[in-house]
Nucleic acid binder design. Structure first.
Length: 619
DNA sequence: GTAGGGTTAG
């Protein structure tokens, strides 16, 4: 009798111990607990222990539990079997989970949901998960919100948006579409298919939203280029009292990178530190990218160094891409070597970045060396992006025939960006013959892109082929093709000021034009001559000079000089490539005002200092 | 007992 009581106390003691651990523990169960699992003969104790093993991903404890289940003959118990499947799933032992599921003579909805959930966690199992879902339908087992949310996010991408819409319809029919998990999964899927309108409709109509819903919507926006909406949502989430997590912060930082809003990006950097997400890989890599895209390559490198503890390939890639963007090819190359010394193998993204760095510096031999290294040493299969980089490298280095040959023999169809790159190179190196070939393809692929027609006309103009220039002008006029309007942005005191070419709406525009006129007078003393050779407008020379003088980046720099203290650099973002005249203007302006000027155009960064540009006039 | 979210790429 006394022994029995002692045994009961022993079991009770375990029950309390296991129960406490299953609620609070983030660590694996102590080895003694796992060893003593054989003593636990109460079903509730085993259940607690199974939960604990699933939570802590302890396969040793989990297998011991399974052995105990068999020993005491609870194999047929549905609840216990479900817990075993879940434990195996969390311990990444999918085969064991599948075996247990198949052995069950009677399955509950939870059994189906658990095995489907287990299969969705890796790419190989997703097809099987979908098959099981279809099998469920055939067998007449009703699904619920758990089934749909598992299936939606991981498996739906294998198919088209129509399948996702069908799953959406299923959930409406089953009246589970208002469930928070289902809604979040649905908006995530629609955003992945770039149907941001549907995603935001679902978000707005959800009766209950949690922090995952908000961060999924933010991620959806930022991945589809809706940067302003991302930041708006971030502020709304703050207003609604949701504590920002690392998911939200990384999306918000990416939005700042897209918008090049340095002030807000810095605020988010401070928030991430304060919230303890400073060492999160996603936050760190988006911060590196944000600083690089805002023109602050030193700050990007500081974040990179600070993330030393948690280095991942993405952090290396983000930094190499940052260096490439700023045409710091030697730094990118050093990092490329260093990453390998630290045991990281370059991946396809690393190679896109390193090739891009070579392209911006005209390093065609080095570019070819990296391309060969990618194939021979790292056994990576070059994608269309890598070929695109190589076309750019050869073209920019003046090897236009080599670029064309590569387009002809590569295993992909040429993209418009490749022909565009070749056309731009033909303009720089004056190759009319290849320019016409590239333009022919471009006109077919992008008939409404005025920039391509203008580029070809510029080549004719440079070669004094005036008849062709006139023909190109006529074509532009007849088809009413207009080039995207030049716009530049500058951030001053947390506010973004935007200027279009010939801007009239800015509240201080008269003051800006007056100041710009004064500056031009001063720059002319430094031999500044307005270069109208790139201007195709069918107007007099004096009018051309006026149009060039009012280019958006000139207005933005003038406003920056008026508003920003002399000790800080002036940062400008532009929607088009900087023109030759503005490039000379910025160089002279940096010398005349002793200011550092940083311009981000569509291609790259230009750091102007003491009359020189970091691109060494190669862009 | 079972479910949903993030970073780097011309």
């Amino acid at each position: 009798m006394k022994t029995l009581r002692r045994c009961e106390r022993f079991c009770d003691c375990y029950r309390i111990h296991i129960r406490k651990l299953s609620v609070i523990s983030d660590n694996k169960p102590e080895p003694s607990l796992v060893e003593n699992v054989v003593h636990v003969e109460r079903v509730s104790n085993l259940h607690y222990l199974l939960q604990l093993c699933a939570k802590t991903r302890s396969s040793v404890g989990g297998r011991a539990c399974h052995a105990q289940v068999i020993r005491v003959g609870w194999e047929m118990d549905v609840l216990t079997s479900n817990m075993l499947i879940n434990m195996y799933s969390k311990c990444s032992l999918v085969d064991s989970a599948r075996k247990k599921f198949n052995e069950m003579p009677v399955k509950s909805l939870v059994s189906w949901n658990t095995i489907i959930g287990a299969l969705t966690h890796n790419a190989e199992g997703q097809e099987e998960a979908l098959t099981l879902f279809i099998q469920m339908q055939r067998e007449g087992t009703p699904f619920n919100e758990f089934t749909i949310s598992s299936i939606l996010c991981k498996c739906a991408f294998k198919y088209a948006i129509l399948e996702c819409m069908q799953l959406h319809a299923f959930s409406i029919k089953a009246a589970i579409d208002s469930n928070c998990f289902v809604g979040t999964a649905l908006l995530h899927v629609y955003a992945k298919f770039s149907s941001i309108k549907y995603a935001s409709q679902i978000f707005d109509s959800m009766p209950e939203k949690n922090v995952v819903t908000w961060s999924s919507m933010m991620a959806g926006y930022v991945q589809n280029g809706f940067h302003e909406e991302t930041l708006l949502l971030f502020h709304n989430a703050q207003f609604m009292g949701f504590e920002q997590d690392a998911f939200m912060i990384s999306s918000a930082v990416s939005a700042c990178a897209g918008l090049a809003t340095l002030v807000e990006g810095k605020q988010l950097h401070a928030i991430s530190h304060k919230s303890g997400f400073g060492s999160n890989i996603y936050v760190s890599s988006s911060l590196i990218d944000m600083y690089a895209k805002c023109g602050c390559i030193r700050e990007a490198y500081l974040v990179f160094q600070g993330a030393m503890e948690v280095w991942s390939i993405v952090l290396w890639n983000a930094m190499i891409s940052g260096f490439a963007r700023h045409a710091y090819a030697p730094e990118a190359m050093i990092l490329f070597e260093k990453m390998q010394q630290r045991g990281f193998f370059p991946d396809d993204v690393t190679y896109v970045s390193i090739l891009n760095a070579c392209s911006h510096m005209g390093l065609h031999e080095e570019g070819q060396k990296y391309f060969d290294l990618m194939v021979r040493q790292h056994k990576l299969s070059p994608s269309v992006l890598h070929f695109s980089c190589m076309v750019d490298i050869f073209g920019r280095a003046g090897l236009v025939h080599k670029a064309y040959e590569l387009i002809e023999r590569m295993p992909f169809n040429a993209t418009s960006s490749m022909w565009g790159s070749l056309l731009a190179s033909c303009r720089v190196y004056g190759n009319i013959e290849l320019a016409e070939i590239a333009a022919k393809h471009l006109f077919e692929m992008e008939p409404n892109n005025a920039g391509n027609h203008i580029l070809l006309a510029n080549i004719y103009a440079a070669n004094e082929k005036w008849d062709e220039v006139a023909r190109a002008r006529k074509l532009l006029r007849e088809n009413d093709l207009k080039k995207e309007r030049g716009t530049s942005w500058i951030e001053i005191k947390n506010k973004v000021h935007s200027f279009t070419v010939g801007e009239r709406n800015h509240p201080q525009i008269d003051e800006i034009y007056a100041k710009l006129d004064d500056l031009v007078v001063e720059l002319k003393k430094l031999n500044y001559k307005v270069d109208t050779s790139n201007d195709l407008h069918d107007v007099e020379e004096s009018r051309k000079q006026m149009l060039l003088r009012h280019h958006s980046e000139k207005l933005a720099i003038t406003f920056g000089l008026m508003c920003l203290p002399s000790c800080i650099p002036i940062r400008i973002i532009k929607n088009l490539r900087i023109c030759g005249d503005c490039h000379i203007f910025m160089k002279l302006m940096s010398k005349f005002t002793s200011r550092e000027i940083i311009v981000r155009d569509t291609n790259r960064f230009h750091h102007f200092k003491d009359g020189f540009c970091s691109c060494r006039d190669f862009w």
